[in-house]
Amino acid sequence: MRKHSILFFMGGIFSLMIAMGIGRFAYTPILPLMQKELSFSNTVAGYLASSNYAGYLLGAILAGAIPLKQYRTISLRISLIISIFTTALMGLTYSYLLWNVLRFLSGVASAYVFVLSSGIVLDKLATTNKTNWSGLFYGGVGFGIFLSSLIIPILNQAFQWEGTWIGLAVVSGILAFFVWIWFNDTSSIVETKNKQETFIQVPPTKWLPWLTVAYGLEGLGYIVTGTFIISIAEKTSSFHNHATLVWMMVGLAAIPSCLIWSVLSKKWGYVKPLVLAMTLQSIGIAMPAFWISQTSFVISALLFGATFMGITTLATTLGRQINPSNSSRTIGNLTAIYAIGQLIGPTLAGVLSSFTHNFNAALVGAASVILIGAGLLLNGIQFERKSKKINKSRNFSL
Rank of each mutant, 00 (worst) to 15 (best):
I285W: 00
I22Q: 01
L334T: 03
W99L: 13
S83D: 13
A233K: 03
A289E: 00
S75G: 12
G23R: 03
V213F: 15
L98I: 15
L48G: 06
A254H: 01
G21A: 12
N323K: 11
S293P: 00
S51Y: 10
S300T: 03
V351S: 13
Y96F: 15
V121D: 04
W161R: 01
E384A: 03
V108P: 04
N184A: 14
S231N: 09
H240L: 15
R329H: 12
L147V: 13
I223Y: 10
G332M: 09
L168W: 10
V171W: 10
L280C: 06
L334Y: 01
G119N: 08
S231K: 07
L16M: 07
F137Q: 05
N52M: 13
V108D: 03
S397T: 12
V250R: 03
G11N: 07
A361N: 13
I84D: 05
N194I: 15
N129M: 04
L208Y: 14
M20N: 06
V213H: 11
A286Y: 00
A60P: 01
L7E: 05
E218D: 12
Q157I: 12
K386R: 14
T317R: 08
I78C: 10
M248D: 00
I255G: 02
S79M: 09
G380L: 04
Y56A: 00
E218Y: 06
K388I: 09
T87M: 15
S293H: 04
V271G: 00
L76D: 02
A176T: 13
G319S: 05
I6C: 08
R24P: 01
T131H: 05
V213A: 14
K69A: 11
